[in-house]
Design a binder for these strands. Structure first.
Length: 445
RNA sequence: CGGGGCGUGGCGCAGUUUGGUAGCGCGCUGGUUUUGGGUACCAGAGGCCGGAAGUUCGAAUCUUCUCGCCCCGACCA
């Protein structure tokens, strides 16, 4: 993308309303604009990142055997009256009325709707297990929206729902989610830790939340260093192997890891001092196994092999997709701007033309731009007629992980400069080698 | 919802206490200059001061009502 043809309204100054770093940077980098309290438009750059994250979430869900679909944002109140949540949910639910005076609502979650779909279509244990999911906009009328998309009212969430005949199978579904979430967050370049959680209003007896570790996180977390050091890496995971999954889950959930809300000082004290870690985190995922909480009142039953009718065992599993954009920035920034991990960067590499209008510099940039595009790398070419300083500042702000700097001085020596946004390290190399090098970096992403 | 604060050009702000008809920086436009980390100078454009109703000869400024936004708290992905 050529910057002169893109829509990237960057701000030199920080808008007054933004308090936390991710909100500031998202506004300054032209990723979002507020539309009203807690509701944002996603400008092209922000939208690109949002889609990148969504794509990774989809891929990892499907690797785990979960089935994508899409449910509507607007739901009928009747379903919620069946589960009893229409009254229980309170003013956080945005209630609306259609022209026929029917009570509708903008969905804050989809348990009722998916249960309804399920009960109308499935009646035998033979069709189980199944896990369905979608990525859809939700609305929760927060009392006080804040921190940009971190605590917005409208937000993009991946929510999945598992259906199983018995508890054992349901735990397997739960474990698939634990491991697929670990993989998802790892691919996003984040360190996320599952922590035992209170089930909260969604209910249930088995619940973990996933916290991304970031210095500016909203909640205090207490952990055993052992869990921080765990990583799946390139390990192959067979999601159908219940025992193997249980092993992985145990590995991640046995070491102490709690948020301040569920923190147990006595248990934490049992962790050797050298391994005690106190940090800050941002909740980016929450998973629940809640059994028959919805299937029972809503009559979602299947016939078992023995001929009995039993309510299905269910779980629900959320990832805050739009919130992840902010969490990624909280975990990856410096005082100049954002530093995207390669896996989600809206543009993998930026080209800075130090002397726009100089025939040689222009030509060198054009051929780099074409070659990188051909190599499958997304490029942001700053072809504005701006000073070098302005171009560097913009590139740093929007956070391209790599930058190629092209100017007459270097070209006279036959080199351009390849710089890592994260480390600031630069190497001079020929334009051809720069393309090769960048292509290598992104080949594995 | 309780407590606090703020609405003045695209952004950041001053002016409000002591009413006299709007100003600064950035950005924007044109020009000159400059050119390896947000260049300097010149000349411009752009605001019915969130909205409504009052008080007054006169309101950004005082009064009342209203709308919006932000911060702290309880709540949440």
């Amino acid at each position: 993308m050529r910057l002169t043809r893109y829509f990237l309204p960057v701000l030199k100054e920080t808008p007054a309303e933004a308090q936390i770093v991710s909100h500031r940077l998202m506004l300054r980098a032209g990723m979002i604009r507020q539309s009203s309290a807690g509701i944002y438009s996603w400008l092209p750059l922000g939208f690109k990142v949002l889609r990148r994250i969504e794509q990774i979430v989809h891929e990892e869900q499907q690797k785990a055997g979960h089935i994508p679909m899409l449910m509507p944002t607007i739901q009928s109140a009747d379903l919620w009256r069946e589960s009893g949540r229409y009254d229980a949910y309170g003013p956080e639910m945005l209630r609306i009325r259609d022209r026929h005076d029917r009570d509708m609502l903008f969905g804050p979650t989809n348990e009722e709707m998916i249960t309804d779909i399920f009960r109308n279509a499935v009646s035998s244990y033979r069709e189980l297990p199944k896990t369905l999911y979608h990525v859809q906009w939700k609305f929760r009328d927060e009392i006080r929206p804040r921190f940009g998309v971190m605590r917005g009212r409208e937000f993009l969430m991946k929510d999945g729902y598992s259906f199983d005949t018995d508890r054992e199978s349901a735990i397997h579904a739960f474990n698939r989610h634990v491991v697929s979430y670990l993989r998802t967050f790892e691919r996003l370049g984040l360190k996320a830790v599952p922590m035992r959680a209170d089930a909260g209003p969604i209910g249930g007896d088995y619940s973990y939340e996933f916290l991304v570790l970031a210095e500016t996180g909203e909640s205090e977390v207490f952990l055993d260093r052992d869990v921080v050091e765990l990583a799946l890496g390139d390990r192959e995971v067979d999601f159908t192997d219940a025992a193997a999954l249980q092993g992985l889950v145990d590995q991640w959930t046995t070491p102490y890891a709690r948020t301040d809300e569920t923190h147990d000082a006595a248990l934490f004290d049992a962790v050797p001092d050298a391994r005690k870690v106190t940090a800050r985190g941002i909740e980016v995922g929450h998973i629940f196994y809640f059994g028959t909480k919805y299937s029972e009142p809503m009559g979602a039953v299947v016939t078992t092999a023995e001929g009995n009718q039993v309510p299905v065992e269910m779980g629900s599993y959320g990832i805050g997709v739009s919130r992840l954009v902010a969490a990624l920035i909280e975990a990856n920034h410096d005082d100049k701007g954002i530093i995207w991990p390669e896996s989600v960067a809206p543009f993998g590499v930026g080209i800075v033309n130090l002397k726009q209008g100089d025939a040689e510099a222009d030509a060198a940039c054009e051929s780099l731009y074409a070659a990188l595009g051909k190599a499958g790398v997304e490029v942001l070419y700053d072809d504005r007629d701006e000073r070098a300083g302005a171009k560097f500042a913009t590139m740093d702000l929007v956070g391209c992980p790599w930058r190629i700097t092209v100017g007459p001085r270097g070209l006279a020596k036959g080199v351009v400069e390849l710089t890592s946004r994260r480390t600031g390290e630069s190497t001079e190399l020929s334009p051809e080698d720069a393309v090769t090098r960048v292509a290598e970096i992104f080949a594995g992403v």
